[in-house]
Write a protein that binds this DNA or RNA. Structure first.
Lengths: 119, 119
DNA sequence: TATATCACTATACTTTTGTATAGTAACCTG
DNA sequence: CAGGTTACTATACAAAAGTATAGTGATATA
């Protein structure tokens, strides 16, 4: 089935429509996923670099969210056998492609804020 | 400040970028907001109609989420003094404009599912 | 008079999500 | 050989989000 006709079908059924959006939502929701993705959009980073980049994140949460992002194919993890080991996290092509959904969210967010708290 | 130059600024700063996306995310996140919005995309609905439309939602959650959506200017609430009272919920123009962010999410969600569970 | 409809609200509870704090193992530097 | 670096994990706890169940008041119908 082509992507175009599949999208037609999903759009026509409220249940499938909501499910597809939830697939996307699950990937980016959680308190720290966006800050992590945002940071990785500037290039690959090591664990400690992310920890320093993202104010107030704890190593537990960073580790947890990175694992989920990796499972979802959004980031890749590469271990370099240096001493001490260094681990690099990087956006996959799927991760990069999230820009197409984040960009409209930025636009809507900015416009919404204007509507809510005057111009 | 124009919307265009403002978007430029937001895109250039990781913190503002994440904040704008979170403004959007907060409006649509929660287990029941998308089903509600999805249902209202087919036209105005009364409380009981929404309750019947959305499988397994409790009146408590429906009431709670509708209140939040109303506060955020996504839905409007109109009371008709019939007996018993009927209350109609409808998407505002802000609510309708969410389509511009939901549509890319549908596309990404469908493509992501293909990538994750084979074609 | 008994039951049903409408649009909710109240109370108590469980589950999920996130925080705080400390610790691990391997190695390098002073 | 004490202290710092790396990338984490373990345990306990607090807060937020969601569920289950019952009840409200006005009115209409059987």
């Amino acid at each position: 089935m082509s992507i175009v006709s599949e999208l037609e079908e999903v759009r026509s059924c409220s249940t499938h429509f909501v499910l597809a959006i939830n697939d996307t939502l699950n990937v980016i929701s959680g308190k720290w996923k966006l800050p992590i993705i945002g940071s990785l959009m500037y290039g690959k980073k090591r664990f400690k670099e992310l920890e320093r980049d993202i104010a107030k994140i704890t190593p537990r949460m960073l580790s947890k969210e990175l694992k989920e992002l990796e499972m979802n194919g959004i980031v890749s993890r590469t271990v370099h056998p240096t001493t001490p080991v260094t681990v690099e996290y990087e956006l996959t092509t799927s991760g990069e492609s999230l820009k197409q959904v984040l960009e409209p969210m930025v636009e809507w967010g900015v416009q919404h804020r204007k509507r809510v708290f005057g111009k």
